[in-house]
Each structure stands twice: as structure tokens, then as C-alpha cells.
Amino acid sequence: MSETTPTSRTGTERPAADIVFDHVTKRYPGQQTPALDDLSMTVPAGETCCLVGPSGGGKTTAMKLVNRLIDFESGDITIGGQSIRSVDVTTLRRDIGYVIQQVGLFPHMTIAGNIGVIPGLLGWSRDRIKKRTDELLDLVRLDRSFASRYPAQLSGGQQQRVGLARALAVDPPVMLMDEPFGALDPITRTEIQDEFLNLESEISKTVIFVTHDIDEAIKMGDRIAVLRQGGVLAQYGTADELLAHPADEYVADFVGADRGLKRLSLRRMREVVAGGDGASNGASPYADAPSVDADATLRIGLSTLFASGAPAVQVTDGGRLLGTVTLDQLQDAVAGSSS
């Protein structure tokens, strides 16, 4: 697999592969309860699965089983149908992008050196590594001049961009991310989350993303797996499913009592205004109402509505008025879709 050459700009030549956990149990020696208890779930190719849960819930364990940083006793994990135990561990890991909270850049190597480590070990030519490094710096929105700098010269956010670029170097079909943005300040964090979502829409990867932050999981995950103490899978589904129909008290508690509000974050104003009554009617009676961008979430729409005290907000798309949305419409949009 590692011989495949990414030729396009974003290296989408290698298709993403699904990851299947099949009755996987992990028990650490000397511990009574398993760290991971009979986990079965499928992460479809190209999707991001966020693993959330408390410390001791086994989320990091589950992730590290995939690249065999931790070994398991029973069950199996397959990537693209192939058992991870049937592949040489070094080959396996080189085909899996790995991003961790501490970033772990090699301090003595330049940024280019860091990104080119695995391509170098795979015997790529200098020219090819250089070309790939430039592509990746573009992809993570760092200036190409960063190639010759050292990790110590970069901010935390920039370092994690390099961490991402390094993980993507050989265009792996699968990425494992262990609280990758957890050490960043809130502003940088939001920025890099947004960019990663963008980047994911350009490149197709199957991602397992560990976080303890349910809001981050809702934002980043196509699917969310909620684990509980003892490594038991409490619920696995889309963010909307979890928020609308939590499987039990535990999940309801975990996603938060404000889950109705959180669901507002999952949808864009554009969707509501298009479906709303009289949405196409530009000459609305709410000409004085504040405006909200069509790509803003319903949560921002609601916030704008409350902050202004107006009965509705106007939804605009690049200056063009799409229509208005009232509080009732917002409520219907969320309550209606949960049934």
C-alpha cells in the first residue's frame, strides 16, 4: 500500500478505507475492569468518527489499538477489509496518519525535515519530497517559507498545522487524532478546527478523532461514539441522533442538558430559510431586522434574534437577501426534525 503515489495536488489518489471494530476487548494486566469492552462499530470510509467519553472510558485505548500502539487480546480490527494483525506493524503505521495533542515534532529537524521523514524512509526522491512538502504546506495554510524553519520558531497552532501536514505526508487512507487541538487557545482552536473541516472536504480520509469535548465532537464528527467507564460503547450515531435521541440517561447527561441548543449548531440558516414560509419573498415585513449570513448556524441566528429583540432575522448570502426567519421557524426546524 505504501508504494502508491499521490499525484494530484491534494493527493486523493488513495481512497479512504472503512475501519471496523469487531468485538474488540482490551484488558490491561492487573486491572479488574476492561479498558475496552466488546467494542463493535464501523466507521465508514471517508467519515470522521469522534470518540468521546470520560477519562478511563477507553477512547484513547480504542484509537491506539488501530495503529497497534496498544495490542488487544480478543476481537479484530480491519481497515478496508484487511485485519490490522495481518500487516507488518511498521507498514501498518506508515499508512495511518497520526496526530497527537503534544504534536511531537522533531525539534532538531526543519519543518520540511519533519514532513519528509516517512517519505524519506520509504525512499522517495528528494524532488518528490520537496514537491509534496510544498503541497502539504499549502494544504494546511502555512507559507512555503516555513519549510526551512524549526519547530521552536513556530507558535502552537502553527506546530499543529505541521503535525497535520506530517501525518498526511504519504497520503494515508486513515488518520488517528488524539485530542489534536486540545492544547491550543480557544481562538486558534476554532480556526484550525474550521480549516480541518475544510481540508477534510478536499481530501477523503477516514478519521478517528478522540476528544473529551462534546462540542468539538459535534462540530468535527460525522458520527460520534460515546464511551462510558469500563470501555462500554453507550451510543454510536450522528450528532443529531445523539442530541435528539440519547440512548439513555448517561448519554443525555454527557451531551448536556442544553442539547436542544446544541442541535441548533448542526444546521445552517440557509436550510431553514429555504424551507420556510415566504422565504423567497424579499419584501418582508421585517426590513429593520438584523441580518445573518446564510452559512451561520441556527444557534447564531437565534443568538442574533435574542440580542436584537427583533421578531425575525434576515438571512443574507453575500449581500443578497434570501428571506427572513422567525423564532417559530427556528423552533420548528429543530423540533420538527427530531421526530
Binding site: 495503529n67 500502539l69 511498521t90 507498514t91 501498518l92 503505521r93 506508515r94 499508512d95 495511518i96 496518519g97 497520526y98 497527537i100 495533542q101 503534544q102 504534536v103 511531537g104 515534532l105 522533531f106 525539534p107 521523514v117 516517512i118 524512509l121 503535525g163 506530517r166 501525518a167 488517528l176
Partner: peptide
């Protein structure tokens, strides 16, 4: 040596010798 650095190296497929 920073454990994060070593873990990253291991996770990305470097052998112990490397």
C-alpha cells in the same frame, strides 16, 4: 527526550532503531 515526540515517531511508523 520528550515522550510526545517519541510517541509521534512510533505512531508514524519509525522502527525502534530509527
Amino acid at each position: 527526550v520528550d515522550p510526545g515526540t517519541v510517541e509521534a515517531a512510533r505512531g508514524m511508523g519509525m522502527t525502534g532503531w530509527q
